[in-house]
Nucleic acid binder design. Structure first.
Length: 275
DNA sequence: GCCCATGATTCACG
DNA sequence: CGTGAATCATGGGC
């Protein structure tokens, strides 16, 4: 598991919601003997950690309570003793009480934040184990797709870019790796399958009559949305490192695809990462 | 319930 | 170590 995934601090607004889980009787959802060993073990270990954290939180709060009480008693004693040498009014007591209350509250917050953080980490583990696989949501895939399509000539994001993508998508770097790995292979396969299909209806020539075999291997394939809602496959051709053009396949003939600028109107709108 | 897309896992390679 | 390739396992649409 990617540690960075857990590193972000718990938002203060979430803390109480997270801590509520500590008050539950039990979080074990497994209804008895069913389920796999691995999950049961995880669940009981999570339950143990949860109970431990609950006790820790309780103890810390009690201790803090006592400390604050003792502190305010000390302050009051000091103030009372000073009354003999200087005038001390109700406001002085009030200020002292406020100061102690503020310290008390900030300490309380820190404890809660710490416990909530611990709990969250453990909860993520158990959640991960419970639901085995979940498809990424639409936003996530479109972000990844956009990056991939923009770097078709070299769809290998750097470590930095992987982290940015992960953060942007709300997934782990490992998941970004998986996605790009799968994507590279499956796109290549897609291209290969398309070529094979085309080769099957043997006589295929470009507009100028030249044979397919002379064509440069496409380095990528994208699906361009058409006005009628359907999608058209476009092959990406890199004749030279800095050159790019697109080829569409229409019936049994390769046609020049849309120009690069047209493509960019469709795909290029989203901001790019700096290379 | 089937089927394919898709995320994850595993292993080999350089 | 990062990647490619094969494979597994699940999700989700029909």
């Amino acid at each position: 598991m990617d540690p960075a995934f857990f590193e972000k601090e718990v938002q203060s607004s979430e803390i109480d919601a997270i801590l509520e889980e500590l008050n539950l009787e039990s979080t074990v959802v497994n209804n008895g003997s069913e389920g796999d060993e691995e999950l049961n073990k995880l669940e009981s270990s999570y339950e143990a950690k949860r109970l431990k954290l609950r006790k820790e939180l309780n103890d810390a709060m009690k201790k803090l309570e006592q400390n604050s009480k003792a502190a305010s008693e000390r302050i009051y004693a000091v103030l009372r003793s000073q009354m003999r040498v200087r005038p001390i009014d109700e406001q002085d007591f009030q200020r002292a009480a406020d100061a102690i209350r503020r310290r008390h509250e900030s300490a309380q917050f820190e404890i809660k934040q710490y416990v909530a953080n611990c709990l969250l980490v453990h909860r993520r583990n158990i959640e991960q184990a419970r639901k085995k696989r979940k498809n990424f949501d639409k936003d996530t895939t479109s972000i990844l797709q956009a990056y991939f399509d923009k770097h078709l000539d070299h769809p290998y994001p750097s470590e930095e870019h992987k982290q940015m993508l992960a953060q942007q998508c709300g997934i782990t770097v490992q998941q970004v790796n998986n996605w790009f790995g799968n994507q590279r292979i499956r796109r290549r396969k897609q291209i290969e399958d398309s070529r094979l299909q085309h080769e099957q209806n043997s006589e295929m020539y470009c507009q100028d009559g030249s044979n397919l075999e002379q064509l440069i291997q496409p380095s990528g394939i994208i699906e361009m949305p058409l006005e009628d809602g359907s999608q058209q496959k476009l092959f990406i051709i890199h004749p030279q490192p800095n050159q790019i053009y697109y080829q569409a396949f229409d019936g049994d003939m390769y046609m020049p695809g849309p120009s690069n600028s047209e493509i960019h109107q469709i795909y290029g709108a989203n901001e790019d990462f700096q290379q």
